[in-house]
Nucleic acid binder design. Sequence first.
DNA 1: CGCAAATCCAACTCGTCAGTTGGAGTTTAT
DNA 2: ATAAACTCCAACTGACGAGTTGGATTTGCG
Lengths: 194, 194
Amino acid sequence: MLADMAWNTARTRQLLLDAAIDEFAEYGPEAARLDRIAATAGVNKERIYQYFGNKEQLFGAVLSWSLERLAEAVPLEGPLAANLPEYAGRVFDYHREHPQFIRLLYWEGLHRGGDPIAAREERAEHYAAKLAALAAAQKEGAVPSEFAPGELLYAVIALAGWWYATPPLAQMIMGDDVENARETLVRVVAKLVS
Amino acid sequence: MLADMAWNTARTRQLLLDAAIDEFAEYGPEAARLDRIAATAGVNKERIYQYFGNKEQLFGAVLSWSLERLAEAVPLEGPLAANLPEYAGRVFDYHREHPQFIRLLYWEGLHRGGDPIAAREERAEHYAAKLAALAAAQKEGAVPSEFAPGELLYAVIALAGWWYATPPLAQMIMGDDVENARETLVRVVAKLVS
DNA sequence: CGCAAATCCAACTCGTCAGTTGGAGTTTAT
DNA sequence: ATAAACTCCAACTGACGAGTTGGATTTGCG
């Protein structure tokens, strides 16, 4: 034990949240086990209920925290919006480095029920900002106006995430070369804004 | 009761399978309830174990049956391959009419564990056939060769399915107009093969 | 100090659900 | 027509996991 030097409730809370992110991303809201989360965090299960309420609320906290992170992870502002293919590539890279977040996004999409949407406001803001940046880039002529900003963003997100959503099928079609998948993604988006 | 005229085990089996498809598509492999499946089918729960073994095997049967259906649902042969945008639209329509199947596909993708892939062989064949059809269309010059067949199919499947995978996010970006989503999909794919 | 408030945790409760069982009804074959 | 084999189902069992509790330990404050 050796003196954990005073209580550190914020740290304990964060340990639980981090463990919960991995657990929920891996197993989904139903198969996630609170005992396992507590064990991973090195904390007693009962702490979860003190800090987060119950399993569903913990999942809600995980979603809010993670999906907001995901939305703000790869910026798309000002000059960056002019290079949409590279943006798509960076989104893909982010998923590769942090596969938890895209998986949580899909879990949320599949798991209809309970809360309507987690962190609706914040996420809506992030996406609205991206859409605005794209619209501005189009106004400047840096990006063609053939597709509306929402249509472009939709395509980029769908294409960048799919590889991690259904790995078996994706690899059945594309092979298992991740680098190649990334390059393809960039080329496809480049075609859309050509 | 009125004479169910002899046993009809095939029918009972099919009732269970149909109910299981809906249940698993809706709730996923973990939250699906065998009691509910049996009740929906109007059959005793014990039948599931006679016909399918256990929950995991039932899920496997549901996946094999459904995903093979999904793969063969929208044909892409011969002359059809020349019109890839319309193919994408038909895939989208299929998902709209039978949302169970795309959801099962995503459940399978997220639920790593247990069996590697359900109905690997059959599905691989279906996709190989689609890829071959695309390659042929390219050889004839009906489809440009800028992207490899696998790259095109990847893009189409990802774009057509995403709307149903994460409805909240998709609608956050695109609005909730399904017809518009379909049109956009067709236009995007058209751009890819232009 | 010393006392109240907050933090921690081992062990418990309790509902739910996958999987089982025993027996009753149904069919087919001889 | 009767026995063997198959189909059905209500009720049971046992495990697992979400949520709780009671008490031990720590901290902060007068």
